[in-house]
Nucleic acid binder design. Structure first.
Lengths: 136, 136
DNA sequence: GGTTGACTTAGAGCTTACTCTAAGGATTAC
DNA sequence: GTAATCCTTAGAGTAAGCTCTAAGTCAACC
């Protein structure tokens, strides 16, 4: 019986189960951070095997990729967690989720404009430096 | 004598001396943060009056505005401090300062591209939500 | 059957960039 | 002359987002 169980586990693991290490590799997020995200509620309902070890699905990968997108957009984890909470509550929260994204999209748009302006000014300064350096 | 001194100080202060409070108002940076920037070496050679109180000049304002630009570009204070150190050493460090700006400009350019991509995707998701919501 | 190695947890520690507190000194206003 | 208000300092505290540690479980390998 134990041999069969462990064979089964090995086969399913090799066949498709994603443990935390593999999930970490696939998503380029450390195992520490993945556990942390589960703890604060950004990752929810992560399945466990008989040992209590987490295993992840392709839906978890999709979700964490979206989380990464929100993070790279500069959304704080608090808001991402709020989005995760709304998502958990189902379709009735679609409007609220849309609003969350919309609000952040406005902020990001302003940020990009500001960054582009700064970039332009810095490039001018770089040219100024090039002139200073070439004079010597 | 004390009357004359205090008259003088009042006049010079109103006439042009910028104390930490006024500098804070002018730059929109808290007095706490201004002292912190001096402590870590982002602000250097800030003048003091007879009481040991800081007073600031228009050059300090120019510099802190530049610091704000670097910060809004996402440059960490460590690098801004490094830039300040190089600046203090004079014209011989122009090349290094140029390089610092150049390196960060490259990072920022990549960041803007990424953010713009994310923004596009998020706007698509917002439209998806609008469709979901309108169906009901 | 003992070691290795991957997993688990709670919780401590770290980094960045502030932000605040406590204690105290000088000027101004009554 | 004393209270209010401004400044000073060193150093503690905070918030966000990890990152690591310690102690322990469990399955696999020799």
């Amino acid at each position: 019986m134990p041999t069969i169980t462990s064979s089964f586990q090995r086969i399913t693991c090799l066949g498709g189960l994603i443990n935390i290490q593999r999930f970490s590799t696939l998503t380029n997020i450390s195992a520490h951070t993945i556990r942390y995200y589960e703890k604060i509620g950004v990752l929810k309902h992560i399945a466990r095997n008989a040992n209590g070890h987490r295993f992840f699905t392709s839906k978890d990968i999709d979700w964490i990729q979206f989380v990464k997108r929100l993070k790279e957009m500069g959304m704080p984890l608090d808001n991402i967690k709020l989005y995760a909470d709304l998502r958990e509550q189902g379709e009735s929260t679609a409007e609220q989720r849309k609003q969350l994204l919309q609000d952040h999209a406005v902020l990001l748009e302003e940020k990009i404009v500001l960054e582009a302006l700064h970039l332009k000014k810095i490039k001018e300064k770089i040219i100024y430096y090039e002139n200073v350096i070439n004079k010597n």
